[in-house]
Design a protein around this nucleic acid. Structure first.
Lengths: 241, 241
DNA sequence: TCTAGTTGTCTATATAAATAGACATTCCAT
DNA sequence: ATGGAATGTCTATTTATATAGACAACTAGA
């Protein structure tokens, strides 16, 4: 048995998730299309209409496109590998896995550090920090939605610098920080929330990988703490020691 | 708006996931119980019966226990932190986060290496390898379900050694491998499949974190490749560089 | 041109999820 | 003891999900 009933997740969604996963794994690379609806219905032990609901959801996401009389073609098939190391940098990490990379600054505010942010940045709670809300895309598809905090005293101009350069590394350099390293990365996974769905253009019920990362300068002083969300069907992390 | 309708994921499951997450985050630590059903219903904008379905699912998982007249008490609230580094070892990693740790050998077979396993272990496809199916628990709750492969020529006796010691590190030592290091760890996340649900005692629709890890000896020769699945609501990873 | 194989659309029915309301039961502070 | 606040149980209704069957529309190869 491959799909589960009466568990709070509709069959069509379970099937959509599995097909999406199969596409990402390259299971259908041989002919570049998904198996016929009747074959999928047999495979999952459900009615053809249920499979059609699943394929409609994937078409909505832009992953497949049905062509009457021919079959259902795979439009997009990617799982970007994202290395995590002491020298983790977003743009370099993506490397040549995508032709077109973009960093977009959604919003920026200066605020008082909450107790958690203060602890992570090793500053006193209430100290001013700059918060950046950023969205990153590869080949026009969103691959991460990040919230980052920087100590205001050192990096008050980070928003302007990031807007001009589109890169944290470049922005740091403009502000006189020549180099930095990744100190800690925490990884967990959650169901996508409504905001994730909007930002990352996810289907409801999808999974997001969540990282909490701390970057420090070469003296070990924290320079950036960020919480990032990645669509789990498009991204995997690799930790090389 | 906090919950989404008509998206293939039942409201009660979305709400159960959010409450589980809130419990893990410590949102309800003040009084050790979940808010009253009517308050949750108001918060999520749903009927009280829908909230009751969510709480029933969490009770089934052993996370909460309802007491008539009193409220719904939090029974379990943990997210075990699992460090990933060059010296990653399961038992040491758990450390004192759990009182009672256990490693159980579910099954073992000797088989020919598939192309993927051969590539990971840097051997020829078809070479014999030992496969171990293991389950790890912390305080009686399953925290990982792993499938590991070892080259038969060097580690033919790994199953026996593991059964006797309950530890990979110990088993390696018995077979003459004094030390080893983690070379690569890949992390991704998926919806739990039926097998995960059985092994890890997960609720349907739950998320599993999947790691693919390669351990090598000090000369850099691969000694173990393993695929592990962790319940995402109980586990997080920390990568310290 | 014909036909097998595929997706598209329609109707109908059964089951699960969600809402709504009423009232019982239990705990606990007053 | 009493009343407020909480969970437990029941009935009824509406909406979403899933199944079933039939047939139309389109594609590609024989």
């Amino acid at each position: 048995m491959i799909v589960q009933r009466q568990n709070g997740v509709a069959l069509w969604r379970q099937i959509a998730d599995r097909i999406r996963s199969s596409i990402a794994s390259g299971d259908y690379d041989a002919d570049g299309r998904v198996p016929p609806e009747l074959a999928l219905a047999a495979q999952f032990g459900v009615n053809r209409h249920t499979v059609r609901s699943a394929l409609a959801a994937l078409a909505e996401e832009g992953i497949v496109r049905a062509e009457q009389g021919r079959g259902t073609m795979i439009e997009r098939k990617q799982r970007i590998n994202f290395p995590i190391s002491r020298r983790t940098r977003f743009t370099e990490g993506i490397g040549d896995q995508a032709r077109e990379k973009e960093g977009l600054l959604l919003a920026t505010v200066e605020e008082e550090a909450s107790t958690e942010i203060a602890r992570r940045l090793a500053i006193d709670a209430g100290t001013m920090v700059v918060r950046l809300e950023t969205l990153r895309t590869a080949d026009r598809r969103p691959v991460s939605r990040a919230t980052s905090w920087f100590p205001s005293d050192r990096f008050g101009g980070i928003a302007k610098a990031y807007r001009e350069t589109g890169s944290i590394t470049e922005a740091f350099r403009d502000l006189g920080l020549k180099d930095y390293v990744r100190a800690v990365t925490e990884v967990t996974a959650l169901h996508a929330e409504v905001e994730d769905r909007a930002d990352l253009k996810l289907s409801p019920g999808a999974i997001v990988l969540v990282t909490r990362a701390l970057n420090c300068d070469l003296e070990g002083r924290p320079v950036q703490f960020s919480v990032s969300r990645f669509p789990a069907d498009m991204v995997q992390f690799t930790i090389e020691n």
